[in-house]
């Protein structure tokens, strides 16, 4: 059985998916994140609230997600954060 992903790992996966496409539609991001719709909604809302991603709506009412500078900074520092948590047993 596959190991359950930690919260930090899920956030990293979502941010990587957005960064790799620059802009991504909600449905595509849901598939890429490999989460249930309920969990996906919770994570996305949290990431928007914390300023890691933003939701853009164009004139045709199409929704896309894009990564912010804070989200990019998280990805750059992800290895350090993961190392810190694991090495201190937090």
């Amino acid at each position: 059985m596959a190991k359950k992903r930690e919260r930090l790992e899920v956030i990293k996966d979502i941010l990587y998916s957005i960064r790799s496409t620059r802009k991504i539609k909600p449905t595509r991001l849901l598939y890429a994140s490999n989460l249930s719709p309920q969990m996906f909604k919770e994570y996305v809302n949290e990431l928007i609230k914390k300023g890691f991603i933003k939701l853009d709506i164009d004139e045709k009412e199409k929704k896309t997600f894009s990564i912010t500078s804070k989200g990019n900074e998280f990805l750059q520092e992800y290895k350090i954060i993961e190392n810190f948590v694991e090495n201190f047993g937090l």
């Binding site: 930090l8 914390k50 804070k70 900074e73 998280f74 520092e77 350090i80 954060i81 810190f84 948590v85 201190f88 937090l90």
Partner: peptide, 17 residues
Amino acid sequence: KTHRLFRLSFHQGIRYF
């Protein structure tokens, strides 16, 4: 150092540490 990591990760363990 740890506050910076917490501001990025919002990890509760780092926060309590």
